[in-house]
């Protein structure tokens, strides 16, 4: 079994910290690679040449916020699902937006799960912990 790497693209440091804490509390010990903007996340995912070769044979799970300072999460989602090397990696959209059209658009573009961050912390923490449990049973394919 290959170790799964969790790529967390989240511009709000507080959110990132809360997400990480709760994932850990669920007993998930996988490596979490955080990014606070879209550009650096894209470089990590597709390499400096943008080909996606760097993600070959990686096992990635992507946690994606939609409101980023330099681009929208939807741009990243589109690129991930269009690239041969990353398209099979699960993408979990985790954002404050609960707009029906936005949710629909994310699923249309190939998002695997869409989770709205509840303001209520109990709900938030619970959702993340459930997500963590979900990760532990989830089969992540190797990127081709």
């Amino acid at each position: 079994m290959h170790p799964v790497c969790i790529v967390m693209i989240e511009d709000d440091e507080g959110h990132a910290r809360l997400i990480e804490r709760n994932i850990r509390r669920a007993g998930v010990n996988n490596e979490i690679v955080p990014f606070r903007d879209g550009t650096s996340a894209l470089t990590y995912l597709f390499g400096p040449d943008g080909s996606g070769e760097v993600s070959r044979r990686r096992h990635l799970l992507i946690l994606l916020d939609l409101n980023l300072p330099d681009m929208t999460g939807i741009d990243i989602l589109e690129k991930v699902k269009a690239n041969a090397h990353t398209k099979r990696s699960p993408v979990i959209v985790l954002t404050t937006t609960d707009d029906a059209r936005e949710i629909q658009r994310c699923y249309d573009l190939g998002a695997n799960v869409y989770v709205t961050k509840p303001v209520n912390y109990e709900g938030f923490a619970h959702a993340i912990r459930q997500l963590g449990l979900f990760f532990s049973v989830m089969q992540i394919p190797e990127t081709p």
């Binding site: 809360l18 303001v119 923490a125």
Partner: peptide
């Protein structure tokens, strides 16, 4: 909403 998540989260 985004900062509110933090306020609530870290309060908890």
């Amino acid at each position: 909403r985004a900062p509110l998540v933090n306020i609530m989260g870290f309060t908890s």
